[in-house]
């Protein structure tokens, strides 16, 4: 905006700040010291204690309490078949629904799963492509195939970059392989979560996810997701599927 409005804005702040009790300001540490203190705690959260089993248990318990469904897979090789199962179960559950938002068109059409052309995912399904590309199920890349309304794909598939067990929270970083709308536009969301990406705190999850992200640069969007979409705006009654997914399936597996 124009410089004058910025000048006025900052002038109002600095004028008011001058009215402060000088003693109070001196008692407050400088921004440089604040940054130093933060870097100490940040180092600690970059090397968290390895409580893998308890973190997985805690994350599972809390996420289930927040209406998500968790699947523990023996190995990464089970991922493609479990994706297919989730998709088929979803189609079966919503088959006789009279909700137009869940109408995927002709019964005989394949069930479409939208994903973001993700290299990790391609690696995971290598050799099992047929499981997710046949007469009943089809992987479609978004946004080539929309994910919006009647007749479109209703299921989305994304990969979590980290998770924090403290509140059952998945961390999803936006990229060309993981576009943000895939986390919100579908009716049924399937998330792949490698077990060694499960941390305890937000800080641990945040820094571990960023350390893996491309160019170590902060992405446009980081979504922390802790269950399916919900609202309580109608008489404070909890209702799932407000604008985002009605269902959240999390597949936890050990990376080979």
């Amino acid at each position: 905006m124009t410089n004058s409005s910025k000048t006025q804005f900052l002038k109002d702040i600095s004028t008011a700040v001058k009215g402060r009790d000088g003693g109070l300001i001196k008692a407050e540490i400088t921004p440089q010291d604040w940054a130093k203190q933060t870097s100490v705690t940040r180092e600690k959260s970059r090397s968290p204690s390895a409580n893998k089993t308890s973190n997985i248990e805690k994350l599972t318990k809390i996420l289930e309490g927040q209406s998500a469904t968790i699947y523990h897979l023996e190995s990464a090789s089970k991922v493609p078949s479990q994706i297919a199962n989730c998709a088929k179960n979803w189609a079966k559950r919503t088959q006789n629904s009279n909700d137009p938002a869940l109408d995927r068109g002709e019964e005989t059409d394949p069930i479409e799963i939208a994903y973001g052309d993700n290299s990790t995912l391609k690696e995971l399904i290598k050799g099992n492509e047929a499981m997710l590309n046949n007469d009943t199920i089809k992987l479609v890349s978004w946004p080539t195939q929309p994910l919006l309304s009647e007749g479109d794909a209703l299921i989305s598939l994304t990969i979590a970059d980290a998770a924090a067990s403290e509140t059952g929270t998945l961390f999803m970083l936006s990229s060309n392989e993981n576009p943000t709308p895939l986390n919100f536009l579908s009716a049924c969301h399937i998330v792949l979560l490698p077990s060694d990406k499960i941390c305890e705190t937000y800080e641990e999850a945040y820094h571990s996810s960023l350390s893996h992200s491309a160019k170590n640069n902060i992405p446009r969007t980081i979504n922390m997701i802790s269950g399916p979409s919900r609202t309580a705006d109608i008489e404070q009654a909890l209702t799932l599927g407000a604008h985002g997914p009605m269902e959240l399936n999390v597949l936890i597996y050990d990376e080979a």
Partner: peptide, 24 residues
């Protein structure tokens, strides 16, 4: 606020879409 441990969605949004992002 609502008595949840955390709200379902918390998002950190930083700037405009990156050059290779498909959306945003």
């Amino acid at each position: 606020a609502t008595g949840q441990a955390i709200s379902t969605y918390t998002s950190f949004i930083t700037g405009a879409k990156r050059p290779d992002d498909l959306t945003g």
